[in-house]
Design a protein around this nucleic acid. Sequence first.
DNA 1: GCCAGGATCGTCT
DNA 2: GACGATCCTGGCG
Length: 194
Amino acid sequence: MNREFFDRSVHQVARDLIGCGVAVGETAGVIVETEAYEASDPACHAYIGRTARNEVLFGPPGHAYVYLSYGIHSLLNFVTEREGSASAVLIRALEPTHGVELMRERRGREDIEGLCSGPGKLTEALGVDLSLNGADLLQPPFDLSERSASWGAVEIAASERIGITKAADLPWRYSAAGSRYVSRPWPAGAFASL
DNA sequence: GCCAGGATCGTCT
DNA sequence: GACGATCCTGGCG
């Protein structure tokens, strides 16, 4: 995984991230659900312009944008597109692959489907918090890997984003069709082409 | 199984 | 001083 991967349209990156591996320290999983947020999008934190909070979104691609949601959950995003173009992919769900016992301890639950099936859940499982805001995704503790051959033919569903009030009708949520690890099911017949 | 409500705090008005 | 890109629990069928 290199910088160029992220230096592309946020929608392309959001789709291409499905099936890719994300490791943070000893824990890792495969991305099965993402959402795209672009600068011209009212639901994007950068829509209102540059502030102290969203500054990372305006920076170079391939960095982590982490912010606190509802005062409780840290949400993990990957910054995309050239510097100055504020856009990011929200990582919404993972299929756990490594460090499952550590994930269980951090989450305080046993069921593997529930460990990373939501944006706030996976950050808790991976140990991601606000201290990683702005961190380079190409450096430790992150270790990202490209989609493996077994995921090469994955079908990707496109549907409406979850939990937002502005621009809620845009179909910018992407999920791996057939995965048991997504945060919510996708509507029938909502498929994007690779 | 579904739904309503509460937890909790950084950010911006 | 209001508002979330959320999650979990408890109450009710």
